[in-house]
């Protein structure tokens, strides 16, 4: 018992001194479990996040837009892979994590349970969803767990291209015909509140936050990050000349930040619990892709085994 206490004290001292925890270091079981949950959810989000955008690759309005969107969706696949690898350093198998996603036990970001109805949604996602993701992810580059922090450095570098390509789409639409501008406004109307929900429940309701802060997995609270996102995004909407769908959104001169309206938390929990517009569709698409790819994985392993056998047979002959 005293031994565990001293290990735990040393672990916490290391974190307090802003040192990184590496895979072979001793860590409390709860720290390991928390990270596996968070990193795998994050990985799943990257992979499921490819679906709403992939929906528009074949219908992108120009070759330039199509190239950008393909590159972005490919990046999301890469992000998922960096993160699955980071999770695996904690002693869990990737297959196990993917199974948990497919049976509905593991969650992914709720934002991907909303549909992409028009091309402007691709702009709004890049601008708002990737913008919110960057806000969440930049502090994770300093997360106490080394492999997660290093994966996030790569992810963040790549995300800024995503956000800029999204904003450029919005800008082009807003400088276009009235119908195009209306399309951009409609996308903002539908994506604004789900984007704010990406920061999670209010601090008072957030169950994992306090411990994650003490472990420096998390560096800022949900509400702090949400506030920053609103403050950063409002002027960008003004520049586009479209209106954020929140009558309570206004600048507070005294506090030097924006006041904004209350999120519809019933909708938030409904989508988290699996009843959003696209939860079933997204999961079904993932399961289908995984099952239909089984023969490719089998063939790759069979081919690798065949080559190994050939080499060992040849060396026997020699």
């Amino acid at each position: 018992m005293t031994e565990i206490t001293s290990l735990e004290e040393r672990f916490q001292a290391k974190i307090d001194a802003d040192q990184r925890i590496e895979p072979r270091d001793w860590m409390p079981e709860k720290y390991r479990k928390t990270l596996i949950r968070q990193i795998s959810q994050h990985a799943h989000s990257e992979i499921v996040g490819m679906l709403p955008e992939g929906n528009w690759i074949t219908r992108a309005p120009s070759l330039r837009r199509k190239l950008g969107l393909i590159a972005k969706v490919q990046d999301e696949a890469g992000h998922g892979l960096y993160l699955y690898s980071a999770a695996e350093t904690l002693g869990v198998e990737r297959d196990e994590l993917i199974d948990q996603l497919h049976i509905g036990k593991a969650k992914y970001s709720s934002i991907f349970n909303y549909p992409t109805l028009t091309w402007a949604d691709i702009g709004a996602i890049g601008w708002l969803v990737d913008g919110a993701a960057i806000m969440n992810q930049v502090p994770l580059c300093r997360c106490s767990y080394g492999p997660y922090a290093r994966a996030m450095v790569r992810v963040c570098k790549e995300e800024s291209f995503h956000q800029r390509q999204g904003y450029e789409i919005m800008l082009t639409l807003c400088e276009g015909s009235p119908a195009q501008k209306a399309m951009a406004q409609d996308a903002l109307n539908r994506w604004w509140w789900p984007a704010l929900m990406m920061f999670g429940p209010n601090d008072a309701e957030s169950t994992h936050s306090a411990q994650s802060m003490a472990w420096k997995i998390k560096r800022f609270s949900n509400d702090e990050l949400r506030q920053r996102f609103v403050d950063m995004t409002k002027p960008q909407a003004d520049y586009l000349g479209i209106t954020i769908p929140d009558p309570d959104l206004k600048w507070d001169e005294e506090k030097q930040k924006h006041d904004f309206g209350e999120i519809d938390w019933d909708e938030f929990w409904k989508v988290v619990k699996g009843h959003g517009p696209c939860n079933k569709e997204r999961l079904a698409a993932r399961v289908k892709a995984h099952e239909e790819g089984q023969w490719v994985r089998d063939a790759a392993v069979a081919y690798a085994n065949k080559k190994v056998n050939k080499i060992s047979n040849n060396s026997q002959v020699a």
């Binding site: 892979l81 350093t89 990737r94 790569r154 790759a300």
Partner: peptide, 11 residues
Amino acid sequence: AGSLHAADAEM
């Protein structure tokens, strides 16, 4: 640079 899964070295 990082880790990945593959069936063999070429992959």
